[in-house]
Design a protein around this nucleic acid. Sequence first.
DNA 1: TTCCGACAGTGGGGTCGCAAT
DNA 2: ATTGCGACCCCACTATCGGAA
Length: 502
Amino acid sequence: MVLLADVVTTSHEVSVTRSRKAKTAAIAGLLGRLDPAEVRPATALLAGELPGGRAGVGWSTLAALAVAPAPDPSLTISAVDAAIGEVRLIKGSGSAQRRTAALTALLAQATADEQQFLVRLLGGELRQGALEGVMVEAIATAAGVPTDAVRRAFMLSGRLPATAEAALRGGEPALAEFGLELGRPVRPMLASPAEDLESALVGEVTVEYKLDGARIQVHRDGDEVHVYTRTLREITRSVPELVDLVRGLDCRSVVLDGETLALDDGGRPRPFQETMSRFGAQNSRELLLHPYFFDCLHLDGADLVDLPLRDRLDALAKVAPQHRIPAAVTPTAERAAELFDEALAAGHEGVVVKDLDSGYAAGRRGRAWRKVKPEHTLDLVVLAAEWGHGRRRGYLSNLHLGARDPDGGPPIMVGKTFKGLTDERLAWQTEEFQRRETHRDDWTVHIAPDLVVEIELDGVQTSPRYPGGVALRFARVLRYRPDKDAASADSIEAVRALLPGG
DNA sequence: TTCCGACAGTGGGGTCGCAAT
DNA sequence: ATTGCGACCCCACTATCGGAA
């Protein structure tokens, strides 16, 4: 029987070293000491996940808890697993109070160290420097199997705890038993950013539109259809039109990977927010979702994940020719550039360039898929900055950005960003902002609005919260502009001009 | 010895469902 | 009826380790 205290000790060992090998060794050591029944919950805890998924508890709830710690450790992993499971089930009127009571009862059995661990875990911010990647290595080490065998089982099962359980119980043969299963989503393959289109065009590739919607993975087995998101959450009931469409395809069974989004009457993409409003809305068909498939992982009994993309695209062309994403296979550089322009002209985000010889691999491994999007820049005024957390504690990190008011008023806030800052720049702005400080509160230092920063962004969107009715999307700092002042910053009109159709 | 792939962390805007006010 | 919380959609970027070249 392994105690929560052992997990906490291991987590501490993991957090105090930066060496991945040391982190892996520490976790593997604990995994090797577990009873079989403890492997799943312990794997989740060590990877910073809650066994069974999120429990409806966040920082606000946790911050309100104050419980005297137990003097000695007694909590078992199974007890913690059970307690979190009960918290997750609390619903309905008075649930906040009952949730607090259940959490209080759990924390009362925990020592001070255990309480700290549980609060960070429940808040979803364990921050020990080990998540899925390190855990996959640790499972492989503990079970004495190749990392790739673990990685593959994790991709196909979608679950670390089940992967760890199989690896420790039956080694490589048990891991090899994981196949693609209809009705069980696979962890999706992702694209990493490319410098530009030309640098992404290496070898034999296909170039596809990149759409601004939500990732979907559709499984069909006979008349049974399931739809999953990128994080493997099932959304079948929210998207009946997609279910009907897939049920109408000419096949017995299929697994398709793609993107879905809402279109306007002219067939142009609606803003991402509008597509998003469809998720969770039960059976609302007011705004129809359209699917665009770009991969086929299974067709009529044949699993295709290990085949090269070119073969999977053949299967896709066979089963859903009218729902394929617009693309060009092995285009010339000129044709690829044309397709990129066409995608933008049609209102889409850009393109994804994919290696035709690559197999399907979860995550961003291998750089086989590269996304290319146009970038915009704006010169904006820094209005304030918020103190950072974690490794940014003690630094002013998150910038408040404003656009110039053409009528001469104070700058109009259009968003925040913490991205693109090196440690050096972080240190510089922490000093500089305090020199320019006008006032501060608990979280934020406000400064005189005359420091200009060049911001790179993907675009802007209409905003219900910012005063100008517009907000930046994916903003990051490029550089400070000491040569500019607030009067030469970009105006709110320049920001609004980046709105779709603007 | 240098380079580069993979990871983890640090947060951004927005929408929904649900419970509390 | 409105507000706040939590979950989950989309996401970029830097620092770092450790194996590849």
